[in-house]
């Protein structure tokens, strides 16, 4: 510190309070408060449903928040649909493992066009409403700092996460010493069958616009003129 005298100052308590809003999985940072599903529905319909749909199902502004979870998932803590390759989408509730994440994110970022405008109790309430839509809490539930740890025990995908990989660039979470996938530096007669297995269909060639206009007009090559083909 002495080396950089005059640079930086201690933060005041009020300043830390104003900005230190994160809520961790152990609920460090969670302010006291509460909100019922019923009040949450009100908040939701007023401030959230226009984008996310009345039941959190809308795909028009963002991916659906709710859906794809079951009572079995709540029991096991694993969302079964995530295993199904035929299952179309992945909702927020299918993926989220920690309830703190929902609380923290709604509190900091929602509504999208007016983030940080909700009161603490509104955040509790609307979180409760989303949890109720997924049957994590009953319709007469009131979520609070006192019971949120129990609710965590019912999160449908709470056991669905793993850090058993080598892609955390630190020691704390690394679950594997070596990368899971490894290529081979074969140089000749490599055992591959270079058949084209996937190609854009002709009708999709212009889905990204005319590629001739997306390449420099001078150089070793041009962009292909795709204006003759239909957009997808």
């Amino acid at each position: 510190q002495q080396a950089y005298a005059g640079i930086g100052r201690d933060a005041t308590a009020a300043e830390v309070k104003a900005w230190d809003i994160d809520v961790r999985p152990d609920f460090q940072g969670l302010p006291k408060g509460s909100g019922s599903v019923e009040k949450g529905q009100q908040v939701w319909e007023d401030k959230c449903a226009s984008c996310h749909g009345v039941f959190g199902e809308s795909n028009s502004v963002f991916n659906p928040l709710v859906g794809g979870t079951s009572k079995d998932d709540i029991a096991s803590g694993r969302v079964a649909a995530l295993k199904r390759t035929d299952f179309p989408g992945r909702t927020t509730m299918m993926k989220v493992a920690t309830v703190s994440t929902l609380w923290d994110y709604i509190n900091r970022a929602m509504p999208w066009n007016a983030p940080k405008s909700l009161g603490v109790d509104e955040v509790y309430a609307v979180t409760a409403y989303l949890l109720n839509l997924s049957d994590v809490v009953p319709a007469d539930f009131t979520l609070s700092d006192a019971n949120i740890a129990q609710v965590q025990q019912r999160m449908p995908n709470r056991n669905g996460m793993t850090t058993a990989h080598a892609m955390w660039p630190g020691k704390g979470l690394a679950g594997a010493a070596r990368p899971d996938v490894q290529g081979t530096r074969c140089m000749k007669d490599c055992a591959v069958d270079p058949k084209v297995t996937s190609l854009l269909p002709a009708f999709a060639r212009n889905a990204h616009g005319n590629l001739a206009e997306q390449n420099r007009t001078v150089g070793a090559q041009r962009g292909v003129d795709t204006s003759g083909t239909a957009a997808a």
Partner: peptide, 17 residues
């Protein structure tokens, strides 16, 4: 004493789109 207004009053960009 209580802090910098640039911290205490959240700026517009923290509260909008």
């Amino acid at each position: 004493a209580d802090g910098d207004p640039n911290i205490l009053q959240l700026p517009e960009h923290s509260r909008g789109l």
